[in-house]
Design a binder for these strands. Structure first.
Lengths: 168, 168
DNA sequence: TAACAGTCGCTGTCTTGTCAACTACTGTTA
DNA sequence: TAACAGTAGTTGACAAGACAGCGACTGTTA
């Protein structure tokens, strides 16, 4: 969450013809800005309200959705955009805050199972509800039902077919 | 570029009714995934091809678009999502690579003007063309013209009205 | 023209994440 | 059952930003 605006300068459409005036330009710019803007607000809101960043909520939500509220590090890695070592550190912090706990995996002494504590579940519920409310306010309300439908359909392929994006 | 999936778990629509089954859910998920996916690919591609990250291209593109290819630190800050100190360091690195140069501002000895070097302009042009090509391949081609139009219209407000997002 | 609040950019220090290398364990092969 | 390639997770060293506070300069006020 830092830069990556590039095309999204303050320029008006067709201002500089050597710049991307392409068909997709405005759509891409919209996607870029919408996600950056909403995420930035969501991050600030969560930190202010709960005292932890979106990355924590992300991990906790993954655990919440998992059977018995637990996952192995490896599974957590697959479900997130973190590297293994990044996750180790992230889980360290959440664990230090008491929202998550590491347990041995029965039958595989190499493994670690990360489990949501009861306090973790409580904080998750609280945070998640508020978070959804915020996304609704910052994103949901700004589009009409028809627009939601159109955007959802147009962009569905980005989360449906896992690997197809970077073919070639 | 790390986490923030949360709702975007591998769950099917309506799988868990306590989870956001709201109207905006799929649209937001699409926006989130599209930007994360495309940006990740773009970052890797740029580093492999040019040896520098998107943040550099971002700064260089801002300078490219500016009069005489130069901007003050302050102006650069306004046009990006960086903090002042973050920019100082970022410009340090780009300058060390010879793509950008710091100059005094005539008439204000506090100020610094950051200018694209000729090498910087050359690398920018090269990188930018390839970057656009990539965005087209990873994003542009995956939508029909009608879909581009619909997405662009639905999300236009996120980059049009600067401050209105978090009015609450 | 002296005082002083405001602006400009940089620096010290901390946080967060990555990469590469490491230890511990597993399961297959001989 | 010894050897050994593969897997799980952690650790050390480093990169990149954020924040708070600094020194240098500006421009207005008295």
């Amino acid at each position: 969450m830092a830069a990556t605006i590039v095309y999204a300068t303050g320029m008006e459409p067709d201002e500089d013809p050597t710049r991307s005036t392409a068909l997709w330009n405005d759509a891409w710019r919209g996607v870029l800005f919408a996600s950056a803007r909403v995420l930035r607000v969501a991050e600030l809101d969560l930190i202010e309200r709960e005292g932890f960043p979106l990355t924590w909520l992300d991990v906790m939500a993954q655990l919440y959705d998992a059977p018995d509220n637990g996952l192995r590090m490896q599974e957590l890695e697959e479900r997130s955009l973190f590297t293994r070592s990044g996750l180790t550190r992230l889980v360290d912090r959440i664990e230090a805050a008491g929202l998550v706990r590491r347990e041995p995996v029965p039958g595989d002494r190499r493994g670690v199972r990360v489990v949501l504590t009861s306090e973790g579940r409580r904080r998750h519920d609280e945070a998640f509800v508020e978070h959804l409310r915020l996304i609704e306010r910052e994103f949901g309300r700004r589009l009409t039902p028809d627009q939601h439908k159109a955007v959802a359909e147009a962009l569905a392929s980005f989360w449906h077919d896992e690997g197809s994006a970077s073919t070639e």
